Amino acid sequence: MEGRPTLIAIEHDDYHAEHVGVTGDGRQFILTTPFDPAVGTNLGCEFVALYVFDKAGHLLEAKVDSFGPRSSLDESTRRSLLDERLASLGDISFKRVEVAPFEIEHLGIKFGLIVREPEDDDDIWAVEMQPGNYMAFFEPWDSGEYDT
């Protein structure tokens, strides 16, 4: 479909893209902390997600861990898992990545860089980091910039 992104660039930064980069063998990775927002009686949920991609940006592996509701989040336990996941990648460099949109399901929740198609002629393509839609990407897809 015309306009649909094939690769999304993400520049390393000190915010949501703090843990993006490349491993010593050239694989790309995104280590992030998505959240399922509270809706109705749902208390929501905090996660740690590691996505590993090949050199061309195709998803190879996804590891998602649940930490329960934000109100009971043990930040030190989550930080320990983040450190463990980073260490599991070996020698890494934090830098720009270029990866293909992807979608996985965990605990009945959609995770990934999920493409949002235009709903009408006035709408535009977007790619959203889900769950939580905490990073949204728009054309040009190679800018590396995102909205929060």
Rank of each mutant, 00 (worst) to 15 (best):
P101D: 01
A100S: 15
G3M: 00
I114A: 07
T32R: 11
A17W: 01
P118L: 10
K95F: 05
P34D: 04
L31N: 00
A56K: 15
D54S: 04
R27W: 05
L89F: 06
P69Y: 00
E98G: 05
G26M: 05
A100M: 12
L86T: 06
A9S: 12
A136Q: 14
E46P: 04
N42G: 04
Y146A: 04
G90Q: 04
F94L: 15
P34H: 03
F53L: 06
I10P: 06
N42W: 08
E98W: 02
V99N: 12
S76N: 09
A126M: 15
Y134F: 15
G26C: 07
V115I: 15
Y146D: 02
G144L: 09
E117Q: 09
E75V: 13
R78V: 01
D65A: 14
V127N: 09
T41P: 03
E2F: 12
D142Q: 12
L7N: 12
L81A: 03
M129L: 14
L113C: 08
A17F: 09
G90N: 06
K110F: 10
V115R: 03
L7Y: 02
V97A: 10
E18W: 10
D120T: 09
V20P: 09
D54W: 04
T148Y: 08
L86F: 01
S71D: 05
N133D: 14
G57I: 08
Y134M: 13
F47L: 02
F94N: 05
C45F: 03
M129R: 11
R70P: 02
G144T: 07
V52G: 02
G44K: 00
M129G: 10
K110T: 15
Y146T: 06
V52C: 02
M135R: 13
G3W: 00
L86V: 07
